[in-house]
């Protein structure tokens, strides 16, 4: 009887574990799922009075502008700026040449990329215990490693890295007095943030999708 009872408990328990482990809650499984589009606007801003816009022909590198080095890739500036211009035009704005016509507002686009590092101290180090006797060999291997992860047999630590990027779009109204001289007031802004993983084509496609989303969630921008 005890055998049957014990076996039953084991079987039912095993069933629980299988069911439990098999339905682990969802997590991010693609770079596009890290994309976030944040938009904000100045309360009380009248978007109907700004019909003409101008926009510089390059994306400002925030890190470089602040005096630091940057890895911002300007290869796709033209496509990104064209997409932004297209979205503004679709809701009634007209782009003018600031050299000949004073625009009602200015669109400023800036970007930044950041390398993020995470160190996991809880990594199951016992799997590397065998390397202890081959210290010299491991040292050689580590010096030639070229991947984005490094494993240290003498410490239970693994380091992973990923690159994230943010694109800022600002609509600046020069007619609104700034709080301090030399500043400008943004009446609408968008921040597009996400993990920069995948091919350039994929990343560019995600940026285009997110630019479209920024305008879709800002219906008040329309001049109509």
């Amino acid at each position: 009887m005890r055998m049957k009872s014990g076996g039953l408990r084991f079987c039912v328990g095993a069933l629980f574990v299988v069911l439990w482990a098999g339905c682990y809650p969802g997590e991010i499984d693609s770079a596009s799922q890290t994309d976030v589009v944040l938009t904000f606007h100045k309360i009380g801003a009248d978007f109907k009075v700004n019909n003409t816009l101008s926009m510089p022909d390059s994306i400002v590198d925030i890190s470089k502008a602040a005096g630091a080095s940057s890895s911002l890739d300007h290869q796709y500036d033209a496509q990104i700026l064209a997409k932004i211009q297209q979205q503004f035009q679709a809701i009634g704005y007209t782009f003018v040449n600031p050299a000949t016509t004073k625009p009602d507002a200015v669109v400023l686009v800036a970007g930044i990329t950041v390398d993020n590092y995470q160190a996991w101290a809880g990594y199951p180090w016992w799997g590397y215990w065998g390397w202890w006797g081959s210290w010299g060999y491991w040292g050689y291997s580590a010096s030639s490693a070229g991947s984005s992860s490094w494993y240290y047999p003498w410490s239970p630590v693994v380091v992973t890295s990923y690159k994230s990027g943010t694109l800022f779009i600002n609509l600046v109204d020069p007619d609104i007095p700034p709080p301090q001289a030399g500043q400008a007031v943004s009446i609408w802004g968008a921040a597009l943030n996400g993990m920069l993983e995948g091919t350039s084509t994929e990343i560019l496609s995600r940026i285009a999708t997110n630019i479209t989303q920024a305008f879709a969630q800002s219906p008040y921008l329309s001049t109509q």
């Binding site: 997590e27 991010i28 890290t34 994309d35 589009v37 944040l38 606007h41 100045k42 989303q213 800002s218």
Partner: peptide, 14 residues
């Protein structure tokens, strides 16, 4: 899309 005051945030939420 989540909205709070004058800000709107869109993304995949877990």
């Amino acid at each position: 899309t989540s909205t709070a005051d004058q800000a709107d945030l869109t993304g995949t939420q877990f």
